[in-house]
């Protein structure tokens, strides 16, 4: 399978000192820039990008167990609707609704996971695609609860202090770091070792005693819970939820973040999320053209850079360091 091939290209074993330095520099930059650039437009995009790193990283977890989901936006939507309904209709405090917005998709994943994760390859793709459509239909048709095709409006901010764009940016930053941190921690732990073993050799892992389905369901549920949290954060940020926002296109978006960023490591989806959130916002004037280019880029990446932007960056660095080395 492709995911296996691409993922194997970067065995990210230990975190080197240089990498810590880069991480620290990045953290400082992320913390400091809004103090100098208090521009709502940039803060808005940056917040969106941060929120999407959660969903992209969570889909990366699913890819790591060897499954390609085209229904991940359904779980994003479940989180968004849960949070929206609980805070508006039932006036729950945000914190409780936020937790619920992670739990609901996770529980749904625990229920459907044991069934769908038995399917492999394209069959898993097809069933997740169908599942996504079903969930979207439910959002649309269950009008008494979900407001139908119009969705739910005027979702309050999580807290009065988070009403400004800058405050929400910092909130999103903290949440993204926490959620992506969870993914990184899972992948770096012993659990990650056996996740990779399952993807690269399911039969072999099973004969070493790894309970395949339980592992897959567990990882799937965690991933769906995390993307549900993004759904909540996103809903309170843009203040509405509607079925159209969680349709197939959004699932495709999350997948494409992984593909374009690179499926080899967790860095890929993070880069992909930022790239795919920021780029369209800067190409606002040419909406059709930007979607068109999105498709073109997808094809080009698949044909020429299956490792995505991360691989492209690595190749470039290698080329700069030793221009003669062909196989760097």
């Amino acid at each position: 399978m492709m995911t296996t091939r691409v993922l194997a290209m970067s065995a990210s074993a230990g975190v080197s000192r240089a990498r810590w330095a880069w991480l620290a520099a990045g953290a400082v930059a992320l913390l400091v820039w809004p103090l100098f650039v208090n521009e709502p437009f940039f803060l808005h995009i940056a917040t969106l990008a941060l929120l999407y790193t959660i969903g992209a990283a969570s889909l990366h977890l699913v890819l790591r167990i060897g499954h390609l989901s085209l229904g991940h936006a359904a779980f994003l939507g479940l989180g968004g609707y849960t949070s929206a309904l609980l805070t508006t209709a039932l006036s729950w405090p945000f914190a409780a609704a936020f937790i619920a917005s992670g739990l609901v998709p996770a529980v749904v994943a625990l229920i459907v996971g044991p069934i769908v994760l038995r399917l492999r390859g394209v069959y898993f793709v097809l069933i997740t695609f169908t599942f996504g459509e079903v969930v979207r239909l439910v959002f649309t048709e269950w009008q008494s609860l979900t407001g139908g095709a119009d969705g739910i409006f005027r979702i309050p901010p999580p807290h009065a202090l988070l009403a400004s764009k800058r405050a929400y940016y910092y909130f999103a930053l903290a949440m993204a770091v926490a959620c992506v941190g969870v993914v990184a921690r899972i992948l770096a732990s012993q659990t990650g070792r056996f996740i990779d073993a399952i993807r690269e050799g399911e039969r072999l892992a099973q004969s070493s005693g790894v309970p395949i389905l339980r592992f897959k369901v567990m990882v799937f549920a965690i991933a769906c819970g995390l993307v549900g949290l993004q759904g909540s954060l996103l809903a309170h940020f843009i203040t509405f939820v509607a079925p159209g926002a969680y349709a197939f296109n959004e699932s495709l978006n999350l997948l494409v973040m992984n593909v374009i960023g690179g499926m080899g490591s967790l860095t890929g989806p993070l880069v992909g999320a930022v790239f795919l959130t920021a780029l369209p916002e800067f190409l606002r004037g040419w909406v059709e053209l930007q979607r068109f280019l999105y498709g073109v880029v997808l094809i080009i990446v698949m044909l020429f850079v299956p490792g995505g932007l991360v691989e492209l960056g690595r190749r470039t660095i290698a080329l700069v360091r030793e221009p003669e080395g062909r196989d760097a």
């Binding site: 394209v122 997948l255 593909v259 053209l289 068109f292 498709g295 073109v296 997808l298 698949m302 044909l303």
Partner: peptide
């Protein structure tokens, strides 16, 4: 299987958006 499927997804976007343009 999967790379060709992802490329097909890309092609689908290209053709539909090309149609819109």
């Amino acid at each position: 299987e999967l790379p060709s499927m992802i490329a097909a997804l890309g092609l689908s976007v290209v053709l539909a958006e090309g149609g819109i343009i």
